[in-house]
Simulated scan of single mutants.
Amino acid sequence: MTLASAVRDTPHTVTDTSGLFQQVAFNHLLGLKRELAADGVSRLVLDARAELTNNFGNVHGGVLMTMLDGAMTSAALSHASFTRAAMTIEMSTQFHRPARGTLTAHGRATRAGQSICFCEAHIEDAQGEVVAKAVGSFKFMRP
């Protein structure tokens, strides 16, 4: 059951948004997995493969941005105890080095009000080197 059908088919508003990550088809296409989302922090993992690389054999920057966005969104949702949905308002990304192999994105909600949550995230490679960082702001919404 999708979130939309759950809302449509029940007279009550859905208040548990913890399953939204698994409903994003793009996450499945990339092979992106969420290992943790609790208390305003998150961890996502991706095993890089050839289909996700650029002309230089490194993980494409768009894939890295998706990981960072997902990590920050997961952190924001968990900060709100999965009672709200969140939509990206803006995101600023820095790429530090080429990304290959198993990548882990760590997200953290740094400050939140009633409607906006500010977050940060970084991605590490298997050696623990930071390959990219981002900050972003997210609009809380009713699911």
Rank of each mutant, 00 (worst) to 15 (best):
T2K: 08
T2Q: 03
S5I: 10
R8D: 08
V14R: 13
T15M: 15
F21C: 14
F21I: 14
F21V: 12
Q23I: 10
Q23L: 14
V24M: 15
V24E: 14
H28C: 02
H28L: 08
L29S: 13
G31E: 08
E35R: 05
D39Y: 03
D39R: 10
D39S: 10
V41E: 00
S42R: 12
S42E: 00
L44G: 07
L46I: 07
L46Q: 05
L46K: 07
L46R: 05
A48Y: 03
A48T: 13
A48V: 04
R49M: 04
E51A: 14
L52I: 09
L52F: 15
F56M: 13
G57V: 08
N58C: 09
V59R: 05
V59H: 03
V59E: 08
G62F: 04
V63K: 06
L64N: 01
T66Q: 07
T66F: 05
M67C: 10
L68F: 01
D69E: 14
D69F: 03
G70Q: 10
G70H: 04
G70Y: 05
M72G: 13
T73D: 11
S74Y: 01
S74G: 06
A76V: 03
L77F: 04
A80D: 06
F82E: 05
F82N: 04
R84Q: 09
R84I: 02
I89P: 01
M91C: 09
T93G: 06
T93P: 06
Q94V: 00
F95E: 15
F95W: 12
R97W: 12
T102A: 05
L103H: 02
A105G: 13
H106W: 03
H106D: 01
R108F: 01
R111L: 13
R111V: 06
G113I: 07
Q114E: 11
Q114P: 01
C117D: 00
F118S: 10
F118C: 05
F118Q: 03
C119T: 06
C119N: 02
C119F: 07
E120M: 09
A121S: 15
H122A: 06
I123G: 05
I123R: 05
I123Q: 06
E124C: 04
Q127R: 02
Q127K: 00
Q127Y: 07
E129C: 13
E129G: 11
V130R: 04
V131N: 02
A132Y: 00
K133T: 13
K133M: 02
A134M: 13
V135A: 14
G136W: 06
S137V: 12
S137Y: 01
S137Q: 10
F138P: 05
R142Y: 12
